[in-house]
Design a binder for these strands. Structure first.
Lengths: 131, 131
DNA sequence: ATCGCTAATGAGAACTACTCTCCCTATCGA
DNA sequence: TCGATAGGGAGAGTAGTTCTCATTAGCGAT
């Protein structure tokens, strides 16, 4: 639950995200909602996505151009990364089992504490590679 | 060589970058140049940094807030990542020896080919942690 | 040296992605 | 059903970056 009140807008946004598999920007979500007849303010879309993301209900990533993308989280419980097909956008959630410890080790080695990291993988999925 | 002509502005920017170790934003570079008496247009700073980056002369990364940072590349030859202090900006170039193979393995496991990845580490360096 | 082609610059407008302000609306516990 | 107040909408504001276009200046040819 993001906030205290269940509004038409929040219901529309969460149900749209439930129907989508891939990452979408706030702007795309806004347009998709409008196409479904749900005319929701852009600010509300940003607010809601931001709130859901920081509540751990959504995964986020940043495109090269600096846009934030959101997607319903499959494994909200644990830290994970994404393998995204650069052709069709298909996304797989992955975990490098050693990655987290490796990252911490690298940090410690250089005297850094409180390490955070971002890792995104981009590739071409089997399907798109054979086309 | 970024372009065809050696201008006062390009000389100033490259020599400033040579003297800096850490990542700086275009805006910071602009201010630093001004402080040195080199009054160079912000657009020129952006253009030059962008050109140098795509020529592989600079490393780039993006902060959480979406700002682009630039730094003279120490090892232009091989793929590496950065461990950046979120307080003072101190930067260490790191290589996860297993990381590259791990990444490829994860991709293969899901049938993805042609894997690229971005990994950045942010932390607090020993110096800033004790303040 | 100097000429002249045109790459490069600078000032400011424009653009993109996002956040904030402020007032109004609507949810939900009492 | 009431009313306190969380939430929403419109549009202004912001930060970072890119674009436009008139002007300047690098550099090969003369």
């Amino acid at each position: 639950m993001v906030g205290q009140r269940t509004t038409r807008q929040r219901t529309a946004i969460t149900s749209l995200l439930d129907d989508l598999d891939d990452f979408r920007s706030a702007q795309q979500v806004h347009v998709l909602l409008r196409e479904k007849g749900q005319d929701i303010g852009l600010a509300t879309v940003y607010r809601t996505l931001g709130a859901m993301a920081s509540a751990g209900e959504l995964d986020t990533l940043r495109t090269e151009s600096g846009e934030s993308l959101f997607r319903r989280c499959e494994r909200p419980d644990r830290h994970h990364h994404h393998l995204v097909c650069r052709t069709c956008g298909r996304t797989v959630e992955v975990q490098g089992p050693n990655l987290e410890t490796m990252v911490r080790a690298i940090g410690a080695e250089h005297g850094f504490v409180d390490i955070e990291h971002t890792l995104e993988l981009f590739g071409t999925c089997a399907n798109c590679a054979t086309l």
